[in-house]
Design a protein around this nucleic acid. Sequence first.
DNA 1: GGCTCCATGTAAGGAGTTACATGATTCA
DNA 2: TGAATCATGTAACTCCTTACATGGAGCC
Lengths: 177, 177
Amino acid sequence: MGDRMTELEGAVLGVIWSLGPITAYGVVQRFAASTTRGWSSSTGAIYPAIKRLTREGFIESTPELEDRRSTRRLTLTEAGKTALRDWIMGLEDWMGGSAVDPVRTRMNYIGILSRAQQLALVEKARGNARRALDEIANFEPDPGHHREGVAIAARGVQADVEARIRWLDQTLALLER
Amino acid sequence: MGDRMTELEGAVLGVIWSLGPITAYGVVQRFAASTTRGWSSSTGAIYPAIKRLTREGFIESTPELEDRRSTRRLTLTEAGKTALRDWIMGLEDWMGGSAVDPVRTRMNYIGILSRAQQLALVEKARGNARRALDEIANFEPDPGHHREGVAIAARGVQADVEARIRWLDQTLALLER
DNA sequence: GGCTCCATGTAAGGAGTTACATGATTCA
DNA sequence: TGAATCATGTAACTCCTTACATGGAGCC
């Protein structure tokens, strides 16, 4: 792609690289199963993305002959691997600061709420975070060929959610005081 | 709005509530100045959002008479305040887990990189995070009428980025070993 | 035979991005 | 007077979401 790839396109290349040969449907399932909420997992996003990436020559699509569904197995071409590397290394300067987060965004404006509502909001957020942490703990990744990166990312998610819970606990103590 | 508001719309209501009366241009500047990267701050997103919210009756727009630019000061209507409260309290179950993050996403696929590239990536991410932390430390929020929420959100951002740096430090140690 | 899952797609609509256009005000 | 900033907006484009459509495979 002459211009930069979207996060979805990059992630699709990554999934095909680590889990491929895989069907487009499999890619969709993979996104749906992610513990990280916010991934689309909608066919209306992923199929067109795969089509674009195929058109660029990054994905090779070979039909499964023993299946009369129009099943096709996807793998990365050499150009696709290069594109994946470039996408990963093309981390922008602003990435790695704090991303937009729906909980923090809302927290800015809790002054408009009653104290009871504020407490309810923070407790709800903490409940959400705890549930997410459980989900992460129980999650076992697909047996892809390359586990190291997945394990590192998983620790990142965990550290993130744990820090959030500590923050919410402090906030709760502050508001209850 | 019959259907749910977007994050941008909610945040716009929040900014107008906490900083208003404020011009649309001022709202744009406020987003641009945010330490949280990922906010649009594009007129092509914010002006139409304000238009939608005005159409819904959430924003009142009064022309500034002593200014021949078409300057208008925005404030929230009562319906707008209710909508802001509903948006804040309408935190979905999945919010508060981990959001999509460009650094973590890429980390999943570092297996395709050489060890040198892996180290470069992690170091770059850590540099980004450190810079973000500095920016947060030096940031002083606008003197809005309601500081408590802003202070809480700021602590959240700080905790988030600090956790990220610890994670990246560990990852670096792991990869260098 | 019917239900569930596998598998691939498209159509309509909405929201955000980039880039452009226009003009007033302020300050050196 | 010229440049930077204040101030409002639109047009084209891209991508994502929701919803729908279609049909084969596997299992009870």
